[in-house]
Design a protein around this nucleic acid. Structure first.
Lengths: 331, 331
DNA sequence: GTGAAAGCGCTAACAG
DNA sequence: CTGTTAGCGCTTTCAC
């Protein structure tokens, strides 16, 4: 593959001139520049990225560490990140931590080694893997969940308020004994949604009971079980707030198996909107989260840090909103 | 950040020894090796990726260029790729081409520049962007759609057979005037699915008519329109084969608007299974594609090419299978 | 088994 | 405005 000196030779100039011409730095005689461009073109020359990165001591690469690309919520985040990164000339390496601290740590290691310009991280748990980044001075933005000992910027969604709204809504629709299926203890979004749910119940003057709460992984399988244990109780809860999209699938499966209809038999509200939510009968009431925006804002913040902005660590909280549909109404 | 010579100094050895010790190449005196390891650890040393890549003239990075991570089909592919790549010590940079040849080309340029070890590409169209890769000798694997002038390995799904099966199935269920909504002309999977649909109709002894075919982008919006134009005809088609998941959402939306029930009023089969397909009433009959496997197999092939296997370009065809559910049955 | 030294391809002083 | 030169951090001959 052609190198810069091949181009230099062919254009009859020095490598420095080629570099300048190609990078548009300082000024180069138009005629020489043209010769350089021509030579580069003829040779199919492409600057060697690693060499340039080594020399400049920086790369135009961001790492995005999320739990799972197959989760539509993270998928939307990653699209937001990619769009912003790409238009700023950055590439994105995608890492699936599966919410395993070890995997997360491993990826952070790789990111450090490759000297990525910055990292967008949706932290798996209470691990300290992000400390590595701090000690190495790599800019970080936390997405969806804050970093344990917070440094760097954070972009969150106001889950708690949204969950509260959802609980109030269910209550206002006349459902009593409202249950909640949320994620594992220690995962902030899971805890927040639970807290919001409790806020809402209290505000509505309803009793708050742990018997109506289930926790499991943020996946369909666990939620399916949880829903079964919840909905086969006597008396059966009248409604349920589900903490994410994948879980909602599990809950709705259980309901179908038990012959329970959303809305009429059990009021349902789930976090995360999806294209198919309106196709259900009745359509699913959801808490819509601004996932794409979260990615885009996060990438923006990261890029400005990389650009050298030395402001204090910020926390941006985006708000989610309730989208009312048939599954949360008896009629 | 600590460099290799910092480690060397601290361990009282040469940089060569550090390199050897850390990479387990040739043999190093155990005692020295231990000193090196200790020194590296104390310094929090991490080899500089770009420097190593430059020196070795190779990187442990793969590029994955797909049309859109937000499409669950590609999402599954990307997960397959990532899992395989990661366990082989490779990272993956993710690129969304949005099926725009220009964007695809741009990403290929970046890949070349960064000297990625190989590229997994789901080609946007008839563009020649992949020629760049060939001339530069970068290994490529085509995913889901073949490269225009085929070189490198290809992993496909047998869409045509699957579409044929789907059409036969609809016919066997007693639907006449079976329609098809597929993707843009020139996109092989779109054309294949149409051809398979036609195969099936012929085989079932039904007439094949262009009036029952609609083409649009592989997205919900276009399919929604297309379905409307199809289902407001008189006489109305009795069934429809939909060429992907996103489109199915559009079609089902239109059906809901028109008060048409899947199965009873219009038989529906769509490509791509989804967790929510069973939640619909009636559940959606689908052609399930092995997307994850496609990614995994593709990554495997690419890695073995990178490893130096010089076999001829291969084509692997995975098969899709029909999953029969309520939307393709009148009862 | 270990060290010295060259050099991967590029950019950025520094002279001219 | 252009060329010479040094050197980014690493691996890899080549001697010893």
């Amino acid at each position: 593959m052609a190198t810069i000196s091949d181009v230099a030779t062919r254009a009859g100039v020095s490598t420095a001139t080629v570099s300048r011409a190609l990078n548009g730095k300082s000024t180069v005689d138009p005629e020489l520049a043209a010769r350089v461009l021509a030579a580069a073109d003829e040779l199919g020359y492409r600057p060697n990225g690693p060499a340039r990165n080594l020399r400049k001591q920086e790369t135009a690469v961001l790492a995005l560490i999320i739990s799972d690309v197959e989760n539509p919520f993270f998928t939307a985040i990653s699209r937001g990140v990619e769009d912003v990164a790409h238009s700023a000339g950055y590439s994105v390496v995608l890492c699936n931590s599966d919410d395993e601290p070890d995997k997360e740590r491993e990826y952070i290691d790789v990111a450090l080694q490759e000297r990525v310009a910055g990292v967008l991280l949706s932290p798996a748990g209470a691990g300290d893997s992000a400390d590595l980044l701090r000690t190495h001075g790599t800019p970080v933005v936390a997405l969806d969940r804050p970093l344990p000992n917070s440094f760097g910027d954070t972009v969150l969604v106001d889950s708690r308020d949204a969950a509260r709204d959802a609980a109030l809504h269910l209550s206002a629709q006349g459902y009593r004994d409202i249950a909640c299926i949320t994620g594992p203890t220690g995962v902030l979004t899971a805890d927040d949604r639970l807290a919001g749910y409790q806020d809402g119940l209290r505000e509505a003057g309803r009793t708050v009971s742990d018997d109506l709460v289930r926790r499991c992984e943020f996946k369909a399988a666990g939620a399916k079980e949880a829903a079964r244990s919840l909905l086969t109780q006597d008396p059966r809860p009248e409604a349920v707030l589900v903490a994410n999209n994948a879980m909602a699938v599990g809950v709705l499966e259980t309901m179908a198996e038990l012959g329970l209809r959303a809305g009429r038999d059990v009021g349902v509200v789930a976090f995360d909107d999806a294209p198919w939510a309106t196709l259900l009968d009745p359509p699913l009431t959801v808490v819509s989260q601004p996932a794409y925006d979260m990615g885009a804002v996060g990438a923006q913040l990261l890029l400005s840090r990389i650009g050298g902005d030395r402001t204090d660590a910020s926390t941006t909280t985006l708000s989610a909103h309730l989208v009312t549909r048939g599954s949360s109404s008896r009629s």
